[in-house]
Design a protein around this nucleic acid. Structure first.
Lengths: 117, 117
DNA sequence: TGAACATTTGAACACTTGTTCAACTGTTAT
DNA sequence: ATAACAGTTGAACAAGTGTTCAAATGTTCA
């Protein structure tokens, strides 16, 4: 009892199918990647990343800049921090956030290129 | 009736705040960017993009490769197509999908770098 | 110590999203 | 024409997500 064929395309290119299968990252990596991109997929978090592009800011300043509550910003910063997209340091009463590494800039730049072309 | 001050940080760096504000992309651009990254934020769509990295495949082959229904894949391809991440051409009964431009590769590569370092 | 400030946290809510199922369109070949 | 195939579409459901609100933590300064 053979499985019903899909369409004829893969029948004629079995070696191609094999190659494609081998290129797929393993499941854990895929989920980690998706989780990373999800963080870029919200305009509030994008704005946070943009205002931190070359500045160090406290939660309260970010909230005021973006016209949102401190709580909302803090929740989002927690997610960005967990994914190592931002880092922070304490300074007196404040907590100053900044970007963690340069991949953020590159990913933002590539996305911008894509939508503006 | 002045607005209550945020914290003292922004009081001392007003020119910095101004610079940051000017760097923020406008609202429409931010939403477009977020929508783009949202597409990368799902493991099914990521897998589709990966199998199309250097191959042209029909809906049915993709579905079989990923162990999912044709309908589920078709729904996702529609989203990827709308965002110009994939393109397609008809060939007989089949519809062959492939990547639309090179930003996909770059974005995938940067994300992968970030999570594997 | 106590009051004021800066931030974090958890629960709750509305809203969005991915998959399934069934029905539908369009193409090929007999 | 008819049947079989390839793909698309819309509605519906469960699962996930962003913001709000209230309460809690921790720091500074008088």
């Amino acid at each position: 009892m053979k499985k019903a064929p899909c369409c004829e395309v893969n029948e004629t290119h079995p070696e191609q199918i094999e190659r494609v299968k081998n290129r797929l990252p393993d499941e854990d990596t895929l989920f980690a990647l998706a989780d990373l991109y999800k963080l870029f997929g919200d305009s509030t978090r994008l704005r946070i990343l943009y205002v931190l592009l070359d500045t160090e800011l406290c939660v309260c300043d970010i909230a005021e800049l973006l016209g949102m509550t401190v709580s909302a910003i803090s929740h989002q910063l927690r997610l960005l921090k967990q994914a190592a997209l931002v880092k922070y340091r304490k300074s007196g009463k404040s907590v100053l956030y900044s970007l963690a590494d340069s991949h953020v800039q590159t990913i933002l730049a590539q996305g911008m290129e894509h939508i503006t072309e």
